[in-house]
Simulated assay, not measured.
Amino acid sequence: MKRRNMVLGVLAAAVFVPASILAFVKPLRAAAPQFVPGVHCVDSGICIDDMSRLEQARTLYSAAVDATSRKVGPFHKPPSVVFCATNACREDFGLGNRAAAAVADWGVAIAPRGWKPYFVVHELIHFRQAEELGNIALLRKPKWLIEGMAYSLSDDPRRPLTQPFEDWRSRFEAWNAARGDAGLWQAADRVE
Rank of each mutant, 00 (worst) to 15 (best):
I146C: 06
K141C: 11
R140V: 08
N87V: 02
K116D: 14
S62T: 15
R159Q: 10
Q163D: 15
A104Q: 07
H76A: 15
L138I: 05
A101Y: 00
K77N: 11
L145Y: 01
E166K: 07
S80F: 06
V81E: 09
E123D: 05
I136C: 02
L138R: 13
A67L: 13
A130M: 10
F75H: 08
D92W: 02
A104R: 08
G114M: 07
S152Y: 15
M149G: 04
I125W: 01
R140A: 13
N97I: 08
A104G: 13
A101D: 03
G148T: 04
E131G: 12
F172L: 06
F165H: 15
A64E: 03
N135Y: 05
P112D: 06
N87L: 09
R169I: 09
F165I: 04
H76W: 13
A101Q: 11
I146N: 14
P117F: 03
A104L: 12
P164C: 12
S154N: 10
P74N: 14
A88S: 12
N87Y: 04
R158H: 07
A85Y: 08
C89Q: 07
A104K: 06
P142A: 07
D155V: 08
R128Q: 14
H122E: 02
G94V: 05
E131P: 12
A130C: 12
F172W: 09
S80C: 05
L161T: 05
R128I: 04
W106E: 11
G134M: 11
A99W: 05
V108M: 01
S152W: 01
L95Q: 02
W115P: 00
D156S: 12
G114N: 12
L124R: 02
A67D: 14
D167V: 12
L124K: 01
R128M: 04
Q56A: 12
R171G: 01
G94K: 03
L138F: 09
R158Q: 13
L161Y: 08
P112H: 06
V72N: 05
Q163L: 14
S152C: 10
R58A: 02
G107M: 02
A57V: 00
V120Y: 08
R70Y: 11
D66M: 12
W115E: 07
E123V: 07
G107N: 03
G96I: 03
C84S: 09
R158C: 05
Y61W: 11
G94E: 07
P157G: 09
T68N: 02
R140F: 13
D167R: 12
E132G: 04
P74H: 15
R58N: 03
Q129C: 07
K143V: 13
E132H: 07
A101L: 12
D155C: 09
F165M: 11
S80V: 10
A130F: 06
F83S: 03
W144T: 05
F93C: 04
H76T: 14
L145G: 03
L153S: 04
V82D: 04
F83K: 01
R113T: 11
A109R: 00
L95T: 00
A101R: 05
T86H: 06
K71S: 14
E123W: 07
R58E: 12
Q129F: 04
S154R: 10
S69P: 01
D155K: 13
R98G: 01
A85I: 00
W106K: 14
H126E: 07
C89V: 04
P142F: 06
I136V: 14
F165T: 01
A99L: 12
S170G: 15
A102S: 15
F75L: 02
A85T: 08
D167W: 07
C84F: 06
A63S: 14
